[in-house]
Computed example of a mutant assay.
Amino acid sequence: MTIYREETDFEELTGDPDDKINFSADTLMYISSYLVNENSYLSKGEVWINWFSKYEKFGELEHLYFMTPTFFENEKLPVTISGNEIELLLCVPISQEELEYFENNGASALEELLYEKNIDVSNLFRKSVI
Protein backbone atom coordinates (compact mmCIF):
# COMPACT_ATOMS: atom_id res chain seq x y z
CA MET A 1 0.00 0.00 0.00
CA THR A 2 1.26 3.47 -0.83
CA ILE A 3 0.45 6.26 1.59
CA TYR A 4 0.64 9.90 0.60
CA ARG A 5 -1.46 13.00 1.10
CA GLU A 6 -4.62 13.24 -0.95
CA GLU A 7 -3.55 16.70 -2.12
CA THR A 8 -0.09 15.52 -3.29
CA ASP A 9 0.80 17.51 -6.39
CA PHE A 10 1.77 14.82 -8.87
CA GLU A 11 2.54 17.40 -11.53
CA GLU A 12 5.23 18.73 -9.19
CA LEU A 13 6.30 15.22 -8.16
CA THR A 14 6.51 13.42 -11.51
CA GLY A 15 5.63 16.04 -14.11
CA ASP A 16 2.26 14.38 -14.81
CA PRO A 17 -0.83 15.57 -12.88
CA ASP A 18 -2.58 12.26 -13.62
CA ASP A 19 0.30 10.11 -12.33
CA LYS A 20 -1.24 9.23 -8.93
CA ILE A 21 -2.35 5.75 -9.96
CA ASN A 22 0.83 5.06 -11.94
CA PHE A 23 3.06 6.20 -9.06
CA SER A 24 1.42 3.77 -6.61
CA ALA A 25 1.31 0.91 -9.11
CA ASP A 26 4.90 1.49 -10.24
CA THR A 27 6.17 1.55 -6.66
CA LEU A 28 4.36 -1.65 -5.69
CA MET A 29 5.32 -3.41 -8.94
CA TYR A 30 8.98 -2.43 -8.63
CA ILE A 31 9.27 -3.58 -5.02
CA SER A 32 7.47 -6.85 -5.78
CA SER A 33 9.51 -7.52 -8.92
CA TYR A 34 12.75 -6.81 -7.11
CA LEU A 35 11.90 -9.27 -4.37
CA VAL A 36 10.92 -12.00 -6.85
CA ASN A 37 13.95 -11.45 -9.09
CA GLU A 38 16.36 -11.40 -6.17
CA ASN A 39 14.56 -14.28 -4.43
CA SER A 40 14.70 -12.06 -1.38
CA TYR A 41 12.55 -10.21 1.09
CA LEU A 42 12.54 -6.84 2.79
CA SER A 43 13.46 -6.49 6.41
CA LYS A 44 13.03 -3.67 8.86
CA GLY A 45 15.94 -1.29 8.94
CA GLU A 46 16.64 -1.76 5.24
CA VAL A 47 17.30 1.30 3.06
CA TRP A 48 16.95 1.57 -0.69
CA ILE A 49 19.39 4.23 -1.81
CA ASN A 50 18.41 6.85 -4.41
CA TRP A 51 14.94 5.41 -4.94
CA PHE A 52 13.51 8.80 -5.96
CA SER A 53 16.42 9.93 -8.12
CA LYS A 54 14.31 9.48 -11.26
CA TYR A 55 12.00 12.26 -10.05
CA GLU A 56 13.85 15.56 -10.51
CA LYS A 57 11.37 17.59 -8.50
CA PHE A 58 10.98 15.22 -5.57
CA GLY A 59 12.65 17.49 -3.06
CA GLU A 60 14.87 16.40 -0.19
CA LEU A 61 13.62 12.84 0.13
CA GLU A 62 15.81 10.55 -1.95
CA HIS A 63 15.82 7.17 -0.23
CA LEU A 64 13.34 4.60 1.11
CA TYR A 65 13.62 3.33 4.67
CA PHE A 66 11.62 0.27 5.80
CA MET A 67 10.42 0.10 9.39
CA THR A 68 7.71 -1.47 11.55
CA PRO A 69 4.64 0.80 11.44
CA THR A 70 3.95 2.47 14.78
CA PHE A 71 0.29 1.49 14.59
CA PHE A 72 1.41 -2.16 14.97
CA GLU A 73 3.62 -1.56 18.03
CA ASN A 74 1.28 -3.41 20.37
CA GLU A 75 0.56 -6.25 17.96
CA LYS A 76 2.44 -9.51 17.93
CA LEU A 77 4.60 -9.44 14.81
CA PRO A 78 5.34 -11.15 12.57
CA VAL A 79 1.95 -12.66 11.82
CA THR A 80 1.55 -16.15 10.39
CA ILE A 81 -0.54 -16.54 7.25
CA SER A 82 -0.89 -19.97 5.65
CA GLY A 83 2.15 -21.15 7.56
CA ASN A 84 4.33 -18.23 6.40
CA GLU A 85 5.60 -15.53 8.74
CA ILE A 86 4.76 -12.07 7.42
CA GLU A 87 6.17 -8.86 8.87
CA LEU A 88 4.36 -5.71 7.86
CA LEU A 89 6.66 -2.81 7.04
CA LEU A 90 6.16 0.89 6.50
CA CYS A 91 8.11 2.45 3.66
CA VAL A 92 9.30 5.93 4.67
CA PRO A 93 11.04 8.34 2.29
CA ILE A 94 14.14 9.80 3.96
CA SER A 95 16.65 12.50 3.09
CA GLN A 96 20.39 12.18 2.56
CA GLU A 97 20.99 13.70 6.03
CA GLU A 98 18.62 11.16 7.60
CA LEU A 99 20.41 8.35 5.72
CA GLU A 100 23.75 9.55 7.11
CA TYR A 101 22.21 9.70 10.60
CA PHE A 102 21.04 6.10 10.11
CA GLU A 103 24.50 5.01 8.95
CA ASN A 104 26.19 6.67 11.94
CA ASN A 105 23.65 5.86 14.66
CA GLY A 106 21.68 2.80 13.52
CA ALA A 107 18.08 1.95 12.74
CA SER A 108 16.71 2.38 16.27
CA ALA A 109 18.16 5.88 16.56
CA LEU A 110 16.70 6.95 13.21
CA GLU A 111 13.28 5.55 14.09
CA GLU A 112 13.34 7.29 17.47
CA LEU A 113 14.22 10.57 15.77
CA LEU A 114 11.43 10.17 13.18
CA TYR A 115 8.94 9.35 15.97
CA GLU A 116 10.21 12.22 18.12
CA LYS A 117 9.82 14.69 15.27
CA ASN A 118 6.39 13.18 14.49
CA ILE A 119 7.04 13.12 10.74
CA ASP A 120 4.14 12.92 8.33
CA VAL A 121 4.96 9.82 6.28
CA SER A 122 2.30 10.84 3.76
CA ASN A 123 4.09 14.10 2.94
CA LEU A 124 6.41 13.27 0.05
CA PHE A 125 7.81 16.83 0.19
CA ARG A 126 8.54 17.07 3.93
CA LYS A 127 11.80 18.64 5.05
CA SER A 128 14.55 16.60 6.64
CA VAL A 129 14.40 16.38 10.44
CA ILE A 130 18.18 16.87 10.59
Rank of each mutant, 00 (worst) to 15 (best):
residue 39 N to S: 15
residue 43 S to G: 12
residue 30 Y to S: 15
residue 55 Y to G: 04
residue 99 L to R: 00
residue 10 F to E: 00
residue 10 F to T: 02
residue 35 L to C: 14
residue 33 S to H: 15
residue 60 E to I: 09
residue 65 Y to Q: 02
residue 127 K to A: 06
residue 23 F to W: 07
residue 90 L to G: 11
residue 113 L to I: 14
residue 78 P to K: 05
residue 109 A to C: 05
residue 57 K to I: 03
residue 83 G to N: 05
residue 54 K to C: 07
residue 14 T to Q: 02
residue 45 G to D: 07
residue 34 Y to D: 13
residue 46 E to F: 05
residue 27 T to K: 06
residue 68 T to V: 14
residue 115 Y to F: 12
residue 19 D to V: 03
residue 47 V to H: 03
residue 60 E to G: 12
residue 119 I to R: 01
residue 1 M to Q: 09
residue 114 L to S: 00
residue 63 H to N: 10
residue 84 N to R: 13
residue 47 V to L: 05
residue 77 L to K: 08
residue 104 N to T: 02
residue 130 I to A: 06
residue 90 L to W: 06
residue 113 L to Y: 01
residue 99 L to M: 04
residue 47 V to D: 04
residue 41 Y to H: 14
residue 75 E to Y: 10
residue 109 A to I: 00
residue 60 E to W: 09
residue 5 R to C: 11
residue 116 E to A: 14
residue 53 S to T: 12
residue 85 E to D: 14
residue 42 L to P: 05
residue 46 E to P: 06
residue 67 M to R: 12
residue 100 E to W: 03
residue 51 W to I: 07
residue 117 K to C: 13
residue 100 E to K: 10
residue 6 E to Y: 13
residue 12 E to V: 10
residue 87 E to R: 13
residue 38 E to A: 15
residue 118 N to V: 14
residue 19 D to M: 01
residue 105 N to V: 01
residue 104 N to L: 07
residue 109 A to Q: 05
residue 129 V to N: 00
residue 11 E to F: 07
residue 57 K to N: 15
residue 97 E to I: 11
residue 8 T to D: 09
residue 5 R to I: 12
residue 6 E to A: 14
residue 84 N to V: 12
residue 61 L to H: 03
residue 11 E to S: 13
residue 41 Y to S: 14
residue 55 Y to C: 02
residue 6 E to F: 12
residue 49 I to K: 15
residue 2 T to N: 11
residue 33 S to Y: 11
residue 48 W to R: 12
residue 21 I to F: 06
residue 115 Y to K: 12
residue 56 E to L: 11
residue 54 K to T: 11
residue 58 F to A: 07
residue 22 N to R: 10
residue 74 N to E: 12
residue 127 K to T: 10
residue 94 I to L: 01
residue 24 S to R: 02
residue 75 E to L: 08
residue 117 K to Y: 06
residue 48 W to S: 12
residue 126 R to P: 04
residue 60 E to C: 09
residue 112 E to Q: 11
residue 95 S to K: 01
residue 24 S to C: 10
residue 98 E to I: 05
residue 120 D to H: 01
residue 83 G to A: 04
residue 124 L to I: 04
residue 15 G to H: 07
residue 26 D to H: 11
residue 85 E to C: 10
residue 22 N to Q: 08
residue 129 V to L: 04
residue 49 I to E: 15
residue 48 W to Q: 11
residue 114 L to N: 01
residue 106 G to V: 01
residue 74 N to D: 14
residue 40 S to I: 06
residue 6 E to N: 12
residue 7 E to R: 06
residue 65 Y to K: 04
residue 95 S to T: 09
residue 2 T to E: 08
residue 110 L to Q: 02
residue 130 I to C: 06
residue 48 W to D: 08
residue 99 L to S: 00
residue 74 N to T: 11
residue 103 E to G: 00
residue 78 P to R: 05
residue 104 N to I: 03
residue 49 I to Y: 14
residue 31 I to R: 06
residue 101 Y to G: 01
residue 73 E to I: 12
residue 66 F to W: 07
residue 58 F to W: 09
